[in-house]
């Protein structure tokens, strides 16, 4: 099944590799992955949609939480949450179709980000299914080129963030005194 994970990660080199490595190591295929800095620039927030056997779902979350660079991993597949995706789409449009395309775009709440004699560049957001439809509709008008952002998700309930506090470091003898 497709599982949506939201992961709060330390923004450190290699941290992303640990997350994707954990998935590929277990043979899970990533459907989409988005990552960007949070308000705190030392942290990143990732949303991953991944295909996982249902019974392994809780296990995957535990594995994620085991990563030292991962501060929090949540499963947002169910429960109150909002999932959105962005699509940027270029459609080559014949002159007689231009009005129709703009009408369709309006129905999907898409915005025109570029217009030229060749056609339009459109931007739309929404859940994956809606965007699938949007892309399908646009494809009927002519040649299209599509870039999708992958899902970003936010939970509508606060998720408690539990961080480990600093621990004092036991001090051994300094090297100079051992001689």
């Amino acid at each position: 099944m497709l599982v949506t994970l939201s992961i709060l990660l330390e923004n450190k080199p290699g941290a992303l590799m640990r997350v994707t490595g954990l998935l590929s190591q277990r043979g899970y295929n990533i459907e989409s992955l988005t990552v960007a800095r949070t308000l705190d620039p030392t942290l990143s927030r990732m949303t991953i949609v991944v295909d996982v056997e249902t019974r392994l779902r809780p296990h995957l979350l535990k594995q994620m939480n085991r990563l030292i660079n991962c501060l929090q991993a949540n499963d947002l597949t169910e429960g109150p949450n909002v999932v959105r995706e962005l699509v940027l789409l270029r459609v080559r449009a014949a002159q007689e179709n231009r009005t129709a395309i703009l009408k369709e775009a309006e129905i999907f709440g898409a915005r025109v980000v570029d217009s030229s004699v060749e056609g339009f560049a459109l931007e739309a957001t929404g859940d994956g299914e809606k965007l699938d439809e949007f892309v399908a509709v646009m494809a009927t008008y002519g040649e299209i080129e599509v870039t999708r952002s992958g899902a970003v998700a936010v939970s509508l309930e606060p998720k408690k963030l539990r961080l480990s506090p600093p621990v004092p470091k036991a001090q051994g003898e300094p090297a100079g005194t051992v001689k």
Binding site: E10, N65, R66, L67, I68, N69, C70, L71, R162, L163, S164, P165, P166, V167, P168, K169, Q171, P174
Partner: peptide, 13 residues
């Protein structure tokens, strides 16, 4: 400078 503290906020023990 000697290290006095280990801080790994994501290391859940």
């Amino acid at each position: 400078t000697p290290v006095h503290e280990i801080h790994l906020p994501g290391y859940k023990l």
